[in-house]
């Protein structure tokens, strides 16, 4: 059996990317994700890969655009303010139908904000990762093991649907160490006949482009992309349920926050309160139907986030008119299980 290793979340992401066949990583230092770059800088030369430190996050994402255009598996990582800089490139990558993986280890914002864990970029990741009509695949792992597993999926789905995928975590998941067993999984790297890697006289030239000056052309392409999104919404939604079958109080939380909520749910159950947790693993596509189903017979719904309330919008849309309460801490403060339990107890009394 594969070895169980104690690793930081950031390092596990980097190691998993190498194991998933990524050999081109473009980075720029920013807390709390820098271990990813450091790990890549150390390991890539040993596997014949490339770690290149860009002059900015803007340059790094455009190097990814170039490498993805050439048809290789490529990745970049950053934290909130750096992701803001990358949004231009992400939009071009989406508009050019290129696959890549982007890691966001969130910290508090807005502005320079702080460096402690946060989930205040949910809107950015799921609704506004750049200009224009497009989506990214957004994965929100909640353990170091899940971070490692997700990297493989992110690359494969990004290639399958020719679109960028984001692994969306936070400073807590990036910095914490947990045991991880790397999946014994051969990377499935698909053929890329569309790549700009030289036609060798064998075909007409490939053009990687997001410019369409005729509105009819642009609309047609965007619509085609959205047809792909519809398939993704039907087939790629992922979530995890914990004690939701008989729950009176449904909690919805993702990533690091879901771990805290899970502790609070266990505590609530021990006090006789029937609480349950639905944890979205993909934030886009969002598990709206699963949430609606889990909420069908509950008395209360509580969304918990490390923000002022962003995913709660999608939860409210999912349950169509039912009351959804919200509890959050922001600015880098991690909510405690006791705080969440107090919210659950209050809902139970209602």
């Amino acid at each position: 059996m594969a070895e169980r290793i104690l690793m930081k979340g950031n390092e596990a992401l980097a190691e998993a990317a190498i194991r998933a066949g990524c050999r081109h990583f473009f980075g720029y230092p920013i807390t709390p994700q820098t271990e990813i770059s450091a790990y890549m800088a150390k390991k890539m030369p040993k596997v014949g890969g490339l770690y290149l430190q860009a002059e900015s996050e803007v340059a790094a994402i455009n190097m990814v655009l170039g490498a993805a255009s050439a048809g290789v598996r490529t990745m970049t990582s950053s934290s909130s303010p750096g992701i803001s800089l990358k949004t231009e490139g992400i939009s071009y990558i989406a508009g050019s139908d290129l696959p890549c993986v982007i890691i966001d280890i969130q910290r508090g914002g807005p502005g320079l904000g702080g460096i402690q864990p946060s989930q205040a970029d949910y809107w950015q990741a799921t609704k506004a990762t750049g200009h224009g009509d497009f989506q990214l695949l957004v994965f929100a792992p909640s353990t170091v093991q899940e971070m490692a597993n997700t990297v493989f999926d992110a690359f494969e789905l990004a290639e399958k649907y020719r679109m960028p995928a984001m692994i969306f975590a936070d400073g807590m998941l990036g910095q914490m160490m947990e045991p991880v067993t790397f999946p014994e999984r051969e990377p499935e790297i698909s053929e890329k006949p569309w790549a700009a890697d030289g036609h060798k006289g064998q075909r007409t030239h490939n053009i990687i482009n997001s410019l369409y000056l005729q509105p009819q052309d642009l609309e047609r392409l965007v619509r085609e992309r959205f047809e792909r999104y519809d398939v993704i919404k039907k087939t790629e939604v992922r979530y995890d349920e914990f004690m939701t079958e008989d729950a009176d109080i449904l909690l919805v939380a993702y990533g690091a926050t879901a771990r805290i909520v899970k502790s609070a749910v266990v505590e609530a159950r021990s006090k006789g309160i029937k609480a349950g947790l639905l944890r979205p693993i993909t934030l886009w596509p969002f598990p709206s139907e699963a949430i609606a189903a889990a909420a069908a017979n509950t008395k209360a719904i509580l969304c918990v986030e490390m923000s002022m309330g962003q995913m709660v919008d999608d939860v409210r849309l999912a349950v169509g008119g039912k009351q959804v309460d919200f509890f959050g801490r922001t600015g880098g403060i991690i909510p405690t299980p006791a705080e969440v339990l107090a919210q659950i107890e209050e809902l139970a009394r209602r």
Binding site: R4, L6, I115, Q175
Partner: peptide
């Protein structure tokens, strides 16, 4: 880390979270 690795060696669940 020493404490965490003890847990790893004994095949337990482990987490280690630093301040940064």
């Amino acid at each position: 880390k020493v404490i965490a690795y003890c847990g790893l060696v004994e095949e337990r669940q482990v987490s280690w979270l630093p301040s940064y």
